[in-house]
């Protein structure tokens, strides 16, 4: 199993490198990064000066290795607008995004998993129909629209929650629900189908033939095997939440990375954009690696492989 962990870590580093390459070249897609970052009507001398300053005239290899070494040392470039190292700004905004994604995930888990388990164990029951409806709703309602509707109803009309900002503790509720709704839908569907599938497995028949209690079958036989499938799904959802918060953060003026990205894109602050893209990718890759390791530790078939 140790070999597995080491090889997965190595793979992740390679992935990270690949991501870095893509991010590096994204900005150079149009050939001249200066045109992207400098005002449209700026005269050529301004652009040329900019190119010199940012080192865009050097050979690609030199630019890339500079970039790479910079990152390894923690230098992600300077934001054009904030006049600060990109890293600083990102670290400032990071906690907000993590908080939002985590609360959204918790919301999704707490609602979806019980419904999925009960629904999957009693197919056709009212609770199961509820679960399937939620699953469908999660896939059909766009989260940015849901955010607007939630604001309209709960913030403006009922006044229960603030409609923007992160000042109060309850500020996180509406954004988290809007962000987590789609994940909740996915989780209900997948939990339900995992439970349904497992219930048809032979070892459940064996468990029932032993006459042990339904509760015990559910907990030790069904759930343990379902948990394995669910861990992957939850991790994927968390990645999605971390990387997909841009709309919600923008609508709710939530001071996180998504919001920052939108501002940076709007202001054509591409060094910052690159840094944010890299950071979010980094977290996603790290999360995936962590999940694979946890999975390897939990699944006896991998943990104790001969």
């Amino acid at each position: 199993m140790q070999r597995y962990i080491i090889s997965r870590t190595f793979q992740s580093l390679l992935l990270l490198l690949g991501v870095l390459i893509i991010i590096f070249f994204m900005v150079r897609l149009t050939g001249d990064p200066a045109t992207l970052m400098v005002a449209r009507d700026a005269p050529e001398e301004v652009r040329e000066a900019f190119r010199e300053k940012m080192g865009f005239n050097r050979p690609m290899i030199v630019q890339f290795s500079d970039y790479l070494f910079g990152i390894v040392q923690g230098d992600f470039g300077e934001s054009l607008h904030f006049d600060q190292p990109a890293l600083e700004i990102i670290l400032e905004r990071l906690p907000a995004t993590f908080q939002l994604a985590t609360v959204a995930l918790l919301f999704a888990i707490v609602v979806a998993i019980p419904i999925g388990i009960i629904g999957g164990s009693n197919p056709g029951s009212p609770l199961d129909s509820l679960g399937r409806t939620l699953g469908l709703l999660g896939q059909t309602i766009p989260n940015f629209w849901l955010a607007l509707i939630l604001i309209l109803i709960f913030a403006v009309n009922l006044g229960w929650f603030p409609s923007f900002g992160r000042d109060k503790t309850i500020s996180v509720v509406l954004p988290a629900i809007a962000l987590g709704f789609a994940s909740m839908g996915q989780l209900v569907r997948l939990t339900r189908s995992a439970v349904l599938e497992i219930r048809n497995e032979d070892y459940i028949r064996t468990a029932r033939s032993k006459g042990i209690s339904t509760l015990r079958i559910g907990a030790k036989h069904v759930f343990r095997n379902a948990a394995l499938a669910l861990i992957s799904v939850i991790s994927i959802q968390y990645s999605y939440l971390l990387g997909g918060s841009i709309y919600i953060e923008t609508i709710f003026s939530w001071p996180g990375l998504g919001n920052l990205l939108q501002q940076a894109v709007d202001g054509r602050d591409f060094p910052l954009v690159q840094a944010i893209a890299f950071f979010i990718s980094f977290f996603v890759i790290a999360l995936t690696l962590l999940t694979d390791v946890v999975y390897a530790l939990i699944d006896p078939r991998i943990r104790y492989s001969r």
Partner: peptide, 16 residues
């Protein structure tokens, strides 16, 4: 009444 089933691979819980 005890039961012995046909396929021991799939009839045992892999996580227990």
């Amino acid at each position: 009444i005890g039961f012995i089933f046909q396929d021991p691979i799939s009839s045992l819980n892999p996580t227990m």
